[in-house]
Amino acid sequence: ETGKELVLALYDYQEKSPREVTMKKGDILTLLNSTNKDWWKVEVNDRQGFVPAAYVKKL
């Protein structure tokens, strides 16, 4: 879809709370919100949640 910003997972991340999502290094995720410098909201496999901003980079 146009207008979607994507990020690349630089590291594996295992969710530690229900508000977070698990990702694997190399995953491409849809970026939903990056206003917080530490935690970015992403969508992966129809799930939305937060990942550490340092673990992903914008494509």
Rank of each mutant, 00 (worst) to 15 (best):
P18V: 09
V51E: 00
D46F: 09
K4L: 13
K16V: 09
Y55R: 06
E15V: 06
K57Y: 08
N33G: 07
L29A: 08
S17L: 08
L29M: 14
K58W: 07
D27C: 07
R47L: 07
M23R: 00
F50Q: 04
L59N: 04
G3E: 13
K37H: 12
K24R: 13
V44P: 00
L32M: 07
Q48M: 10
Q14W: 13
D27F: 04
G49Q: 01
V7Y: 09
R47E: 05
G26L: 02
R19H: 11
D38G: 08
D12S: 08
G49Y: 05
L8N: 02
K4N: 10
K37Q: 11
R47Q: 08
E15Q: 12
K57F: 09
L6A: 06
Y11R: 15
I28V: 10
E43P: 00
F50P: 00
Q48A: 12
Y13S: 01
K41H: 12
R19E: 12
L59W: 08
Y55C: 13
Y11A: 11
V7A: 11
E43K: 10
K16E: 07
V21T: 06
T35K: 13
R47K: 11
L32T: 04
T30N: 08
K41L: 15
D46A: 11
K25Q: 09
S17N: 13
T30V: 15
E20K: 04
V42C: 05
R19I: 13
A54C: 14
Q14N: 14
A9N: 01
A54G: 11
M23H: 00
V51L: 02
T2E: 14
W39D: 01
M23K: 01
F50D: 04
F50T: 03
A54W: 10
R19W: 15
W40P: 01
K41R: 11
V51R: 00
Q48T: 10
L6F: 15
L32V: 12
V56E: 02
N33C: 11
K37W: 07
K41M: 15
Q48L: 07
D46S: 10
L10H: 03
K25E: 07
A9Y: 01
A53M: 04
Y55T: 09
W40E: 01
G3V: 14
K25M: 08
D12I: 02
D12A: 06
T35D: 15
E15R: 12
G49V: 04
G3Y: 13
K58F: 10
Q14F: 15
R19S: 13
L31G: 01
W39Q: 03
N45E: 14
N36A: 08
R47P: 00
N45T: 10
Q14P: 06
K37G: 10
D38N: 12
K25F: 05
N36F: 08
D46C: 13
T2D: 13
K4T: 11
K58V: 13
G3L: 12
Y55P: 02
G49R: 02
T2S: 14
Y13M: 01
A54T: 12
A54H: 12
Q14H: 14
A9G: 03
L8G: 03
R19N: 14
T35V: 09
D27I: 04
Y11N: 09
L31M: 03
G49W: 03
I28C: 07
Q48S: 12
T2K: 13
L31C: 07
V21F: 11
V44D: 11
E20C: 07
S34A: 12
K16N: 10
N36R: 08
S34C: 12
T22Y: 03
N33S: 13
A54D: 12
V7G: 14
R19M: 13
D46Y: 08
W39V: 03
T30Y: 10
T22V: 03
V21H: 03
D46I: 06
T22C: 06
K24C: 11
E15A: 15
D46R: 09
K16R: 14
M23S: 01
A9E: 01
E43Q: 13
W39I: 03
K25V: 07
V7F: 07
L29Q: 01
L10E: 04
V44T: 15
Y11S: 09
K24F: 11
K4M: 11
P18F: 08
K57V: 15
V42P: 00
K58R: 12
L29K: 00
L29G: 13
E20Q: 10
E5F: 12
W39R: 03
N45Y: 13
S34V: 07
E1F: 04
I28G: 00
T22E: 04
Q48G: 06
Y13N: 00
A9L: 02
E5S: 11
E20V: 05
T35Y: 09
K4V: 13
P18A: 11
D38L: 14
V51C: 04
L10Y: 04
L59R: 03
L8Y: 10
P18G: 09
D38S: 09
E20N: 06
A9S: 05
K25A: 13
L10I: 10
D38A: 11
T22L: 02
K24M: 09
P18E: 10
F50R: 03
K37P: 14
Q14R: 09
N45V: 12
D46Q: 12
K4F: 12
I28W: 05
